[in-house]
Amino acid sequence: MDKMQRAVRDIHITDAYHIPKSGKAEVHPLSRLLVTILYIFIVVSFSKYEIAGVLGMAVYLVVMGIWYEISWIECIRKIWMILLPVSLVGIANPFFDRAAFFQIGGITIISGMISLLTLLLKGIFCVLASYCLIVTTGFSKICYALRCFHLPKELITMLLLMERYLVIFLKELERMLQAYKVRAPRQKGIHIKTWGAFVGQLFLRTIDRADIVYDSMLLRGYTGGFVGAAPVFSWKSSILYVVIWVGVLVSFRLYPVFSMIGKLFL
């Protein structure tokens, strides 16, 4: 599956996930966004050797994953995407930071290995937290939450338009690439001679489409803002959601909860 097909599939998956299954009022998107930001903030705030603390933050992901029935296969796919860039930055750590951290059965584990592992865990957890946010909330509701944050309405309008036209342009591009591949078999990408014409044609089609879009928006009463229906949510659940998660995450950060539990079993 190539990049474009994957992107289209991701958008469809996101659309399919966030529809509430029971039809009941749900948690306000702003609550979800705030909890996700706090979670990421706490995860990255651990020092490079605090592997136990970082590992403990998996609790949030496990609960969210099971409660909202998020596909583990999709999660692994997301993890795969960030492993390479994070590893590239942290790969030098075992070579430069060679102090002994602890020993297991005669094997010395050096600090650099622990810091690399902590870095990888941080990367994985942060990506999964963002993924949980999008699949449980949906893009349009995140835009609503961003509007609650007083982000400019121009930006929100552009985001919503972008999301709507993304699939159309990706499919259009796929058709163009298919046609190019048929005419130029066994080529890895677009040949240098056709770089300009290929993207230029796509751009001209985009501009023409933008004109049509604008005309149709005017006909439907567009006055400069994007009016979307406010999501139905319950204040009680939203406040409870924030209070519980903030309490849990902050206590995990401030107190060695897991060490205390672990000592009970050792």
Partner: peptide, 26 residues
């Protein structure tokens, strides 16, 4: 310019799509 925002939105989708194209490096 009221037209600018919708055009920018659609242009954003264009750039996103254009980022998906692989160009052969000679």
């Amino acid at each position: 310019d009221q037209k600018k925002i919708p055009v920018m939105g659609v242009m954003g989708a264009f750039v996103f799509a254009a980022q998906m194209i692989n160009f052969t490096i000679p």
